[in-house]
């Protein structure tokens, strides 16, 4: 079937079996490799991206549901060269180790901050349940709080 959506701002249309996981469409057909395969069972969160601004685990999301929607992947999280506050915070806290799970965590965090701009530790615990085997959780928590600060600072600096 023909599926059309916007991905990272680009209108895209492709011919694909509608039950194909969005993850494989994004990685293999659109060559956006930042979104990772971890488990294929919606268990680890490495494949997290945004569909209409909401966090979705794309390994378990049939591409047919994406028709007509806006998809954002890690490649589209930044605004050109201007890193998203979550990415900026990740840089400042030097979070990644192997780095494989990090795009999924950053996408989940960005989704969290758009719903809860100033998350408490408990909010973080309840919302961010992705898996990181290098166990960078300690720095990730610091980075999430830092990202919240950067985001509100950006918002204040925005001309009204």
């Amino acid at each position: 079937m023909t599926i059309s959506f916007n991905i990272n701002g680009q209108p895209t249309s492709l011919e694909v079996d509608g039950d194909t996981p969005l993850l494989w469409v994004v990685r293999d057909m659109l060559d956006l490799k930042g979104t990772k395969f971890g488990c294929g069972k919606a268990a680890c969160g490495a494949c997290t991206l945004h569909v209409d601004g909401k966090a979705v685990r794309s390994c378990s999301y049939a591409v047919k549901y994406a028709d007509g929607k806006n998809i954002t992947t890690i490649e589209g999280l930044s605004n050109g060269d201007q890193l998203h506050p979550v990415q900026q915070a990740w840089m400042e806290e030097i979070v990644p180790q192997c780095g494989y799970c990090q795009p999924g965590f950053m996408m989940a965090t960005a989704a969290l901050l758009s719903e809860i701009p100033n998350p408490t530790d408990e909010d973080i615990d309840n919302n961010i349940v992705n898996v990181c085997r290098c166990a960078t959780y300690y720095r990730m928590r610091k980075a999430i709080h830092r990202a919240a600060g950067l985001q509100s600072k950006n918002a204040k600096n925005q001309p009204s």
Binding site: P21, R57, C59, S60, L112, D123, N126
Partner: peptide, 21 residues
């Protein structure tokens, strides 16, 4: 579900028998 971990983060309107979700 909670703010950024909605049921729909993983569960859609049909079974996904590839993933078992």
């Amino acid at each position: 579900g909670v703010a950024a971990l909605q049921c729909q983060t993983c569960h859609q309107s049909e079974n996904n028998n590839h993933a078992g979700v």
